[in-house]
């Protein structure tokens, strides 16, 4: 697939948040991603779909350098956030992860209070000077994650005492408390019931107004419901990326067609 070089005009216009070019990832000798070039557009939800082991999670983890934590992992190619290489010398991965937040498959709140879970990021990044400011960030983050009304009277209760769906929204509140520009979600609803799933999906639609969202999902219906762009990965390669509507009604690549119609798993 031909993707043009990153246009500075596009970056400046804010149209492209992340531009990945020829990204290859190796776990020791094993190659997991093959020359993936993909633009993540601003204020849009991009869904990554594909069978298990196709490299979609590996790709999403490249975007905030989560793969740095795996010793045998090697990433090649360039990934630019707002036109700046995220592997550049001056880039601090911790700062990068504040700009590019992440929500995981299973809700993983810290064994702390609801309040402290959300306040953790702003505290270590020094985003609040006063207690009032921190309170404001915690409230706003919980409101944006559609959890405030349910927990405002028990902010100091342990986060682990919430239901699965609430815990996941708490993790979203934690991820957005550092005011990221991009939110990565790795199968955020796979451990949730349909009601909690609908709440998270509704939330993704709202978050999109403030951030770009990249979501990895195994549910094609979910990709169809929440995203504007969909990228299909297969065997470590990006096969096709297009408007979500086009992918689900008229995909251009036979492999995409076979996957979404349930002919290959």
């Amino acid at each position: 697939m031909e993707i043009s070089r990153i246009s500075q005009a596009d970056v400046q216009n804010g149209a492209i948040k992340i531009a990945a070019r020829d990204v290859c990832v190796y776990y020791a000798e094993e190659q997991a991603l093959y020359n993936v070039s993909l633009d993540i557009q601003d204020t849009m939800v991009t869904a990554l779909i594909g069978p298990s082991g196709c490299g979609k999670s590996t790709f999403i983890r490249c975007l905030n350098r989560m793969n740095d934590t795996i010793e045998t992992c090697r990433v090649e190619g360039t990934i630019e956030l707002d036109g700046v290489d995220i592997h550049g010398r001056n880039i601090d991965p911790v700062q990068l992860r504040a700009r590019v937040g992440m929500v995981f498959q299973k809700p993983n709140p810290f064994p702390k209070s609801i309040y402290d879970n959300v306040a953790y990021g702003p505290r270590i990044h020094g985003l609040a000077d006063t207690r009032e400011e921190l309170d404001g960030i915690v409230q706003l983050s919980l409101e944006k994650a559609a959890l405030w009304e349910e927990v405002k009277d028990r902010l100091h209760a342990p986060g682990t005492g919430l239901s699965g769906g609430q815990q996941q929204r708490l993790c979203i509140a934690r991820a957005i408390s550092t005011r990221p520009e991009l939110l990565l979600m790795d199968e955020p609803c796979s451990a949730l019931d349909p009601i909690a799933t609908s709440q998270i999906e509704e939330l993704i639609g709202q978050l999109r107004e403030s951030f770009s969202v990249v979501i990895v999902t195994h549910s094609m219906q979910q990709a169809a419901r929440v995203s504007q762009k969909t990228a299909f990965f297969h065997l470590g390669s990006l096969v096709e990326v297009n408007e979500t509507e086009a992918i689900f009604t008229n995909p251009q690549d036979e492999r995409t067609e076979s996957y979404i119609t349930g002919r290959i798993g």
Binding site: M220, Q221, F248, T249, N250, P251, T256, E257, I260, T261, G262
Partner: peptide, 9 residues
């Protein structure tokens, strides 16, 4: 069945 693509068409 939630058909997609060619199946849906």
């Amino acid at each position: 069945r939630q058909p997609q693509a060619r199946d849906l068409r």
